[in-house]
Design a protein around this nucleic acid. Structure first.
Lengths: 151, 151
DNA sequence: CACCTTTCCCCACAATTACCCACTAGGCGC
DNA sequence: GCGCCTAGTGGGTAATTGTGGGGAAAGGTG
């Protein structure tokens, strides 16, 4: 499932954020009511629960590894995961641990991505965009790949 | 699908822009009702939905990568994408996130391109044209590439 | 067990968007 | 010139979406 678009919302004093109605629609069409959110790369990753389960399986096959770093990753990534379901108005409650990890203030940005969507603090997102616009095209390898997309 | 021509329109207070009737005609002939618009290089890129899906597949194959810069690119480019369908009068509504990115004022310019068309704020477009005319031919590499096109 | 905090479920209002219809200007044929 | 058609613009209204908050239920703590 691919999510599209960028949306701006506010988190209310209770810590609730709206989910874009288009995303909700896609989820219900796929027969999925719940979402799994976790912490990663300075923002919150949100997966349809079925997609998350797929990821979990992959993680499980690696967790038996004695590799300490892999284990640390799994603890962080999977350990942060929480399953949430939108309320009647289509909002989810972001638990304090995730809220503080992503430093979510009042204004947030929700981004569609392939397989998931992401929730960013607005200011952090602005910084991220700035960095991309500055560094992005200086990387010759990335520039070549973008060229090859034929956009 | 190749779009041709440059058109000038106004965005009304509700954020709607007209799509050139010639373009609309091309789209319906190809059996495509919807358009995907996204943000790039200071303007809005508009693709026939089928064309966009082709790009999306390529992007999706890169997103699993942990490469931070690639992710940043996908976030920005795919995250900006929204599917829209013209209303009965042939207009589309540009979402606030894109309108602000491209700094669309009242007057906009729509440009035909191969595979897509672009929506520019009129003033920005004027600046862009000016820059090209001033710098364009001073870049030897670009001059060579243009030469090699055989136009 | 009592108390406090957090979460859930509901209702209410504001803002935005979708879906109409109407008007104007210009091009074209008669 | 006159009427007709099409393209572009503007606006009204209904429906949907987003935001805020009250109060009950659930959970944690001394």
């Amino acid at each position: 499932m691919i999510f599209r678009g960028r949306y701006e919302y506010t988190i209310d004093p209770k810590g609730r954020v709206n989910i874009p109605s288009r995303f909700r629609e896609q989820l219900t069409e796929a027969g999925q009511e719940s979402i799994v959110i976790t912490n990663y790369s300075g923002c919150i990753y949100a997966y349809p629960s079925a997609e998350w389960e797929r990821i979990e399986e992959k993680l499980a096959s690696k967790v038996s590894s004695v590799n300490r770093k892999k284990n640390a990753f799994v603890r962080f990534f999977a350990g942060g995961a929480v399953e949430v379901t939108p309320d009647k108005q289509g909002r989810i409650l972001i638990p304090p641990s995730l809220r503080s990890y992503a430093e979510l203030g009042r204004d947030v940005v929700i981004l569609g991505m392939p397989n998931r969507f992401e929730i960013w603090d607005r200011e952090r997102w602005d910084v991220e965009v700035g960095r991309f616009e500055k560094e992005g095209f200086e990387d010759p390898e990335l520039a070549r790949e973008i060229d090859s997309l034929g956009i």
